[in-house]
Design a protein around this nucleic acid. Structure first.
Lengths: 229, 229
DNA sequence: GCGGCTTTGTGCAAACATTCACAAGGGCGT
DNA sequence: ACGCCCTTGTGAATGTTTGCACAAAGCCGC
């Protein structure tokens, strides 16, 4: 990720940790709105989002003073403010590259389409897949990448290829003008300063779980407890 | 996630931020090992893992002094040490619940099986899916969850159900003895202290990308620059 | 064996994030 | 209009993470 160190807390800068939580708040708020709830306190929203209420208040305070003391936050208003801050009031065309099992699942994923994201095009290099239709969208050949990206004005690319092709696909996305990349391939991507990469990696998550699971398992183990003391 | 605040840097505690990076190092190391590389310097490994070399050295120093000054790290030895620390020298049976598009992709995901993780069982509540076979594994009914979890001694559960059923599936996993959960459903799960939950959520990642993309877009926009100054 | 070259491991300071605790402020009943 | 109660917004304290910069330490050639 290319975040300049000094740029985090500048004149209008929202801390990275806060940005990462805003989508969670937004989801909780949307659920409340659908529920018909008009206002919500920081404590209630914090519980729904699974965080501490002081943290939630500080996070929201970075967006502005949108609450009313003694009352709480107006749900609809806050949904709008958070959406706007996250840039979800505009349309984000997304291109998915790689339509194996995962890419197909992503293309069909409903939650994708909501909230301003729209799957604009699908690309793959396998001739057996090119030409087929997934989720009503035709799969085009990766060679068309640059033309497709420019035509759809896509600025977000999702890489769901095998690890081996991830970097070259990434390079071509960047060359086509994409500046935000969501990478599902188990590979470290190197990109220019101004391009953002976020990584989603099940294998890593499982390994982190395994670490904690092992620690929990060894807690009850007398041999290890003896060593630990 | 249920990490007691004080437990982070105890007697043998490895910082959470470090744990999250160990799998990345492990992957880079495995690639080097397959490549036939015998030793690697912190600088080389840091580049391969996409981090700063000082950070890498400090991370590794939490596991012990496994490097040789003036030389670097023995790749095979380090692979072993990191694997052991992460708990990957043992077998982790995993149960996947929910076999929609995503669950199916996960069940078929090859990288899953490597590194000690083994898909032990598949569960779904849809009668149309129960009884079918995915990746050579029969899909059983969710009602069998407790029996299946106990029979396979599974301690890791993967939730790939719709958001609506996630909490109830989670509760039943916990009741069956699962203490590590990887949640793909867009929902906040509430669990007891001793259960670890990690969340993987595309929608959130996309929203974070959108935030930064919007900021980048408004940087070049004269109107916004004027307001910023 | 010794000096020079290289790379690790780490003390320290700065940056960042979390949490507490409370003053400031707004609504509501009287 | 006033005072009480409730909840926000935030200063200050604490904890965590990062990154620099360098001393400690191993290898190699001579």
């Amino acid at each position: 990720m290319s975040h300049r160190p000094g740029s985090a807390n500048g004149s209008h800068g929202i801390p990275e940790a806060t940005v990462a939580r805003l989508p969670v708040y937004l989801r909780a708020l949307s659920a409340l709105a659908e529920n018909g709830t008009a206002t919500v306190s920081s404590e209630e929203l914090a519980v729904a989002a699974g965080v501490n209420s002081a943290k939630l208040r500080k996070d929201l305070s970075h967006l502005g003073s949108y609450g009313t003391r003694g009352v709480g936050y107006d749900v609809d208003y806050l949904v709008y403010q958070v959406s706007r801050e996250l840039g979800l009031t505009q349309d984000w065309p997304v291109v998915i590259i790689g339509l194996g099992n995962l890419g197909r699942a992503l293309a069909n994923y409903g939650g994708f389409a909501s909230r301003g994201f729209r799957v604009a095009a699908l690309l793959d290099s396998d001739p057996a897949v090119v030409g087929t239709t997934i989720a009503r969208i035709p799969v085009q050949h990766s060679d068309e990448m640059e033309a497709v990206v420019r035509r759809h004005r896509a600025s977000i690319g999702v890489i769901a290829t095998p690890a081996g092709s991830a970097q070259s696909v990434c390079d071509r996305l960047v060359a086509s003008g994409v500046t935000s990349i969501l990478n599902f391939a188990p590979a470290v991507l190197s990109v220019p300063e101004d391009v953002d990469v976020r990584k989603v990696d099940l294998s890593i998550e499982l390994q982190i779980l395994a670490f904690h699971a092992q620690r929990k398992a060894s807690m009850g183990d007398p041999a290890v407890q003896a060593v630990g003391s």
